[in-house]
Amino acid sequence: MLPESVGNFMQLVLNGLAVGSIYASVALGLVIIYKATDVFNFAQGELMTLGAFVCYFFIVQMHIPVGWAILITFFATALIGLVIEELFFKPMVGEPIFSVIMVTVGLSVFLKGIIGFSWGNLIKKFPPFVSEAPITFFGFVISPVQLATIVITAFLITIFALFFKYTDLGIGMRAVANDQDAALLMGIGVRKIFGLSWAISAVVAALGGVLLSNIMYLHPSLSSVGIKVFPAVVLGGLDSIPGAIVGGVIIGVVENIAGGYLGGDIKEITSFIILIAILMIKPYGLFGKEEIERV
């Protein structure tokens, strides 16, 4: 048996890993859009919450079995991603990046309003899809949901790593991210890739939302997870997919440790302090391209 202080610490790390892997999946969606289309999507937190609510809608309001409901949610959110890209971001191709960012800010408020209007502002409990009895091993307590979260995220990351490495579409997306003009000359449908990255990003966000609302609760304010995910992305390096994952996990763990030792009030602002610290010390993050210039 480990001494209690060490056990405590490990428990905090474990909880942090679970939340951190959710941050990682949301951050992954953010980076996919940023890499392919150069848009930093301030509506990512809302996309995540929307995904969770859509899944809730299918399970609770339509009484569809959980497995199917999640599958349908993925298709629905992919469609939402495509529609958003078609309606709001197709017209912005070639516009200054400033305007595009403003559209994402508008989109985030718009989606927040849609979520609140459709489902109300009461806290809801997400129907659990794994048993709620905590599992104990080596003296640590972990809830099945947390375990499932870690496993699912790890699985997802592997899938994406393979997708980007071996499939034509994945290679196309990397090519577009690398150099749009060259990709276009190579016969890659850049516009198709743009739509695809929004769809993938929305699906990944929805998955994060479903997992997060399982661990916590379901409420429109879940979208403020953006304040945790943005530091994660900056920590990992804005344009790096492994960076997003490592950054998300680190933010989750550090935040939980800080919360455990310094109190819950500090927990909420830890990520902001980390953000300021990264910008001071290592502004291009752990894995980002070092093209960031100081001015």
Binding site: F88, P91, M92, S99, M102, V103, V105, G106, L107, S108, V109, F110, L111, K112, G113, I114, I115, G116, F117, G120, N121
Partner: peptide, 24 residues
């Protein structure tokens, strides 16, 4: 009436996006 604040949000979001896209 009950969810009026959310309608405001929807409207503000729409206004921001429309102005940026159509009349910058």
């Amino acid at each position: 009436v009950e969810r009026f604040a959310d309608i405001n949000l929807i409207l503000y979001g729409m206004l921001i996006m429309l102005f940026v896209i159509i009349e910058p």
